[in-house]
Nucleic acid binder design. Sequence first.
DNA 1: CCCTCCAGATACTGATTGGTATCCACATAC
DNA 2: GTATGTGGATACCAATCAGTATCTGGAGGG
Lengths: 218, 218
Amino acid sequence: MAQRLTREQQRQQNRLKLLQAAERVFAERGIQGASLDEVAAAAGLTKGAVYSNFASKEELIQQVFWYRQGTPDAAEFTKLQASGLPAEQLVQRYAQLWARSVRGGERDDFARLAVEFVSYAMRHPDARDKLLDFLSPQQEQAEDHPFAPAGSELSKLPAQQVNTILMALDLGMSALSNLDSERYPPELYGVALRLLAGLGLDEESLPSDATGSRNDPA
Amino acid sequence: MAQRLTREQQRQQNRLKLLQAAERVFAERGIQGASLDEVAAAAGLTKGAVYSNFASKEELIQQVFWYRQGTPDAAEFTKLQASGLPAEQLVQRYAQLWARSVRGGERDDFARLAVEFVSYAMRHPDARDKLLDFLSPQQEQAEDHPFAPAGSELSKLPAQQVNTILMALDLGMSALSNLDSERYPPELYGVALRLLAGLGLDEESLPSDATGSRNDPA
DNA sequence: CCCTCCAGATACTGATTGGTATCCACATAC
DNA sequence: GTATGTGGATACCAATCAGTATCTGGAGGG
């Protein structure tokens, strides 16, 4: 296939492989629990490649942090937020996109990694500052495109604070749904969104069979 | 002073010291990052004491998990939930208690530990099951004492699902506020609660000076 | 076509860690 | 007061890991 890469291309490609491998391994073992050997092996490389591309484990962590922002899903979210759609549709699309990213099989990684990062950031001042720097543009963007429908109670709240509530709900529901998507169905994110926005509950947005107990014999 | 403890009393006391020390060290270093030597030292004991009281690190973790349920704050929350107070008051008390437990200086540990536990549980099936077992009685209790005010939209939702949303908000806001309590003021938990319950925003529940940017010269 | 140089492989180190083996002081039993 | 059993201290071990030093194959320049 398309071989014969220039030296620099090869390097960038390996760097990317390492970042993606690190994502997976971090999600699986936790950031502290992940060894660089394991990350390198998951990328089909060796630790030498890691230290050739990153100064330390700390830097790798921060770069993974960074890299994640450029992920398709994340981009779609911010784009949606900036789209200026009417609330009713925005809520629906948002909830759809969200639920998909949680449900989607191997996307378990997503929630695990998010929680892992937050947990790590809470205990490491440097990472904390980095994370907050990532979050603040999103926060400012919310200012320009307020989520709250015009007449609602929610619209009396500063857009940044609305955004904060949304983020909290996102993080919390991601974690809970990841723990047990049956007992804590991800669809509840959309439900909560509608309630906050002052939109009524429509039937179809409710999870059908979620009694909290698991009597699924399958 | 009151010395002369029986052998069993001494043992129980040391066990307790270890659990409390583990809480602190886990919150500070993370569960994986915490060494048993460090835990033991924080309790004023040695690793010998740890292995005399717990079979392994894994078991210590689970016991800390357990022990935490008996904590005063946690008890107050569940009591409040079962109090059957009218929504308006319940929301206020709940938010108060919550904000206090987040703000209160050394209670940073609380949020850090909660997130750490969830993160750990997401990656360890055994711990996951244990955590879910802790959560389910709370979930069932919600059934008996629904949080939603009578006429509200929220009351159309099964109590357990309401409870799930509350838990998600709790976890998410704890984490965010712990990261930066200025940018993500914990008072927003109460605000979100009022919005979900369909209660209007009263002025005093709003955080006064939270613009999202930090120009506090102090 | 050969020489140079560097990204990444290989090999190694010191420090840390969970866990174990052994030992000792003292509370309890007689 | 003496014997005894046990909770916890001390000492140790093998494994793991971040980081370093060294080496090498092959791309890029001539």
